[in-house]
Amino acid sequence: MLFLEKILRSKAAVWTLLVLPGLWPLWPIFVRPDPSVTADALKYLLHHFGFVACVVLAVVLAFTPLRVLWPKWGVAQAVNRHRRLVGVAAFVYAALHVTTHFVYEGGLDVSFIPDIFRAVVSKPFQLTGLIAFTILLLLAVTSPNAAIKWLGGKRWKNLHRLAYVAAGLVAYHQAAARKIFPLQVLWIFVPLALLEIARVWKQRQVGRVVPKAS
């Protein structure tokens, strides 16, 4: 555990962990081409980037509850040093997903662009994705220290609570992406929801205790 804690403290290690899933598609597309992937490599990229964005978002949202629930656990402390970095990575993967969506839906033909926007606004499945992406974009541009100063700590914190809204939208978006319900949505978001419930419950307990003591 100490070893894991040491690794997770290192910014370079976290960077590497965040970049690796982005390089993964090189394997089935170029290194050892898989005909199931190369049949439509763009679709593979679209789903891969979307999936990674979901996982990274769920992971970064788990950091705070882990720290609240187990404040003395070194791993929880270590990962909480990288909250903003991991959060920006979730945005970057979401941006890759959205960019791939445009190429996937439009090919190289600009005449498809109106169709793409019509579909985005008329399909709740796609609209939820776009709103979640807009939220992540907003949080990413306000992640530098200068933005925190400019907004003020409290306002910044409130703004960044929108990440929970994004997670809810993303869970729906991912669930609606397939013809039958994809179970991966459950194993990504159910643990996160449980952690959040436990965290809120614990913070309420503490909140009740503190005024009595004072």
Binding site: A39, Y104, G107, A119, K123, P124, A176
Partner: peptide, 22 residues
């Protein structure tokens, strides 16, 4: 006539690469 979750106006051409939409 669209599918409720996506448009049916165009399609990806399998093996069509980057420009594979018609």
């Amino acid at each position: 006539v669209d599918h409720p979750r996506w448009s049916q106006a165009s399609e990806r051409v399998i093996g069509g690469g980057l420009g594979g939409r018609q």
